[in-house]
Amino acid sequence: MIIIIFSITVLYLLLIGSFIYGFDKVNDFKLEESQPQTKFSVIIPFRNEAKNLQALIQSISHLNYPKSMFEILLINDDSTDDSVERIKQELTLNTSLDTAILINERLTKAPKKDAISKGILHAKYDWIVTTDADCQLPTYWLDCYDHFIKNTSSKVLAAPVTFKKATSFLERFQLLDMMSLQGATIGGFGIKKPFLCNGANFAYRKSFFNEVKGFEGNTNIASGDDIFLLEKAFKHDKNNIRYIKSNQITVTTTPQSSFKSLKSQRVRWAAKTSRYKNAFGKLTGFLVLVMNALLVCLPLLFFVEIVSLKTLVYTIAIKLMIDFLLLFKTARFLEQEQYLVSYFLSSILYPFFSVYVAFLSVFKGYKWKDRAYTK
């Protein structure tokens, strides 16, 4: 048993250590003043987002980028609230925006992928940028994309996402979890094994999307409009996939308001991991789950005297320290170090939450946006 515990811990240590190394290998991007050249089609699917759309459209109206060089395509995914009315109301105050509201056509089991595909079909420009309806965009969002595109040969670009604020412990718990995902994302790009990205801040050429046949091959699972496309891109042309490491391009979103909605979100995320084709992504997910499961089991193993107190303490301490190093780098990059005060309690609870979510994702379906999805 000691050998198994030691092996799992060492492998986990090496994995997170590689992300810490990779994090620093991705250069910080600094926006410089230049003449905008790239035209963008911004695609935003929405379903019952009335409460968030005002903030989103206001952030769009405050973008520094020339209004004549981007369009906004909002795809209504069968909303049952007054989302469309809210959008129209906001657009009357922002008439300079080139905006269209499209109606999603359900062709597959993945409504969000259908919505994005619909948007791309109607997009006027080659560069597609996706975000979510519950997000707010930074002022120099498109300027950063433009400057990066002009100075690289990129075809696919991933960029950071975080929560705008976190007041309750539940929100801080989610923020720290989001930070860990961002740290692993950046680290993966740094070691040239990208396996994570976030569709709330993701860009790619329309021609490239069509070249890899879009979402074909994974439309039988609702989520993964970002990660599965990244997998395809990496397999097709890994040299032109990059991460923009800049606070000026960071998109902010809001945490889930309840444990129930958080659980549904995480089960939805976990449900797609079995469909990963990226071997490194599969290995990472498996090793992280095994390490968390080990931490859940260790107190019981100690209680029945299978492992010693020293083994219990050392294993937990090693995981806490290596996780903290990656989290600290990410928090410093995102300028959210103040939330690290919740790290210790969150890190004690997280293994139990992680194992619980993994269990549910295997044996149960989930509900999201008032729709039920089965395994």
Rank of each mutant, 00 (worst) to 15 (best):
M178L: 13
H62K: 14
Y243V: 03
V341K: 07
T330V: 01
R266E: 11
A279G: 10
L262H: 10
S246C: 12
S246L: 09
V288W: 11
R106Q: 13
K329F: 05
Y21G: 04
N48M: 07
L56T: 07
T185D: 03
D323T: 00
R371M: 13
L294Y: 07
F173D: 02
R275P: 04
A358V: 10
W141K: 08
S180H: 11
D146H: 01
F344L: 09
S264Q: 15
N198V: 12
P45F: 09
K213L: 13
T9P: 12
Y21P: 02
H62P: 04
K369R: 10
S346P: 02
N76V: 01
L229G: 09
S68R: 10
G119C: 06
Q248D: 15
Y373R: 12
E337I: 03
R205M: 12
T152P: 09
Y339Q: 01
A372M: 15
A317L: 11
K193H: 09
R371F: 05
L334R: 03
T254M: 15
G214I: 08
S117F: 06
D146L: 04
V313E: 09
D143K: 13
L349N: 00
K155Y: 06
V42D: 08
V357P: 06
M178A: 12
F328N: 04
K192S: 14
Y140W: 13
H122K: 13
I60M: 14
L301D: 01
T219R: 14
L295E: 12
S347A: 12
I60Y: 04
G224I: 09
L175C: 00
R332W: 00
F46P: 00
Y373C: 11
Y276Q: 00
F359N: 10
K113F: 00
M321L: 11
S257F: 09
L312C: 02
F353P: 00
T374C: 07
H236V: 03
I306K: 14
I241K: 01
N151E: 10
D82A: 13
G285R: 07
L309P: 02
